[in-house]
């Protein structure tokens, strides 16, 4: 019997774009002053269709609308579009989301994430 190290089969590890998007979206939503994420047109229409047609819809915590991800090897390009409210400093908020999402993705997947944040709207009182 050979040692466990030499007999271990090779493992290929890949994380899907959607999995990373769910992690990023969940973390971005948890940043204070982020009111929500803003989906693009295709995500909005697909989300609405899924809400009406899918008998087992995705729980709100795991929805990834507003985040697009492309995983390349051990890197992930993440784009997050958020909505905030009037008051907090938008630049500081965007940098916070950038850092928090990158860290969450790295901790959960081991991928180095490049995060682009766009504040799409500021909700007014």
């Amino acid at each position: 019997m050979s040692s466990p190290g030499s007999s271990a089969p090779p493992v290929r590890y890949h994380v899907a774009d959607l999995a990373v998007a769910r992690i990023a979206a969940r973390r971005a939503r948890a940043v204070p002053s982020v009111v929500g994420l803003r989906a693009d047109l295709s995500q909005t229409l697909l989300g609405l269709a899924g809400t009406w047609l899918n008998p087992d819809p995705v729980p709100p915590d795991l929805r990834a609308e507003g985040v697009t991800v492309a995983v390349h090897g051990d890197r992930a390009d993440v784009r997050v579009t958020v909505v905030t409210e009037l008051g907090p400093n938008c630049r500081e908020l965007a940098l916070t989301v950038q850092g928090e999402v990158a860290r969450a993705v790295r901790e959960a997947t081991g991928l180095d994430a490049t995060v682009q944040v766009t504040i799409a709207d500021i909700e007014l009182p």
């Binding site: 693009d40 047109l41 938008c90 630049r91 490049t114 682009q116 766009t118 504040i119 709207d121």
Partner: peptide
């Protein structure tokens, strides 16, 4: 909201590298 966002994808102010504001 999505239509408007898609129509004006480049109408952004740069806050920092990788961070922008509509």
């Amino acid at each position: 909201g999505a239509v408007v966002a898609d129509l004006r994808p480049h109408d952004l102010l740069v806050l920092a590298p990788g961070a922008s504001l509509s």
